[in-house]
């Protein structure tokens, strides 16, 4: 049975991602993300030795960490976790010190050029509160993203996690992300061409 309290999360099945970037674009359009910042993006790496080379797509966004460093460091409590486990920024309270942006180990935050405050993925709370999916999930042509309540064992996301092995980004940091990956080339090598 689902518990009263929701805990929103996302699973990204990288086997289904084709690297089309429609998540990146739809997020930008939905949330007015400025030119030089990203709430959602797709990293690409190539692995292997010719002729056996594979390109990997790793869609990224805020991990809505349960133990969120950005929330811990915010000096004015503008970064907070809402009742549904979504990490948000109170734009009226934020002083734009940038500490959370530097403190996020996933580079998931940026300074909004227009608003002059920290900005990041909100799991599209404005859409979710109307019963819709986040824009990136809605527009994912490969259906690689599953969004839902992790506290509900019957939800699609919980079932997906049960059936597929999942991993999170940088579990060594103890941030307890609520974004999970299936079959992702992560946590193995440095980004910049390590061996």
């Amino acid at each position: 049975m689902p518990t009263e309290k929701k805990r929103y999360g996302m699973v990204i099945d990288t086997r289904k991602c084709v690297g089309c970037m429609s998540c990146t674009i739809s997020c930008k359009m939905e949330n007015g993300v400025t030119y030089d910042g990203f709430r959602s993006w797709v990293d690409m790496t190539e692995r292997g030795v010719f002729p056996r080379v594979k390109r990997n797509f790793i869609p990224k966004l805020c991990n809505h960490c349960e133990n969120a460093p950005c929330v811990t460091v915010c000096p004015v409590k503008a970064s907070y976790i809402n009742a549904d486990g979504v990490v948000l920024v109170d734009q009226k309270r934020c002083i734009g010190c940038g500490y959370c942006i530097v403190a996020c180990p996933y580079s998931a935050r940026y300074l909004h050029e227009g608003l002059k405050v920290a900005d990041k993925c909100t799991f599209c709370v404005h859409r979710v509160s109307m019963g819709l999916e986040p824009a990136c999930v809605h527009n994912c042509m490969g259906k690689a993203r599953i969004f839902g309540d992790l506290n509900d064992p019957l939800s699609e996301i919980s079932q997906y996690i049960t059936k597929n092995g999942v991993q999170t980004l940088r579990p060594d940091l103890g941030t307890n992300p609520n974004v999970f990956y299936v079959d992702a080339e992560i946590n193995k090598l440095p980004n910049k061409g390590g061996k």
Binding site: M44, T45, R47, G48
Partner: peptide, 16 residues
Amino acid sequence: MNTQDVYVVVNASPWN
């Protein structure tokens, strides 16, 4: 086994 970055996003730090 080599891994090469093809496209990696790092949001800029606002600290100057």
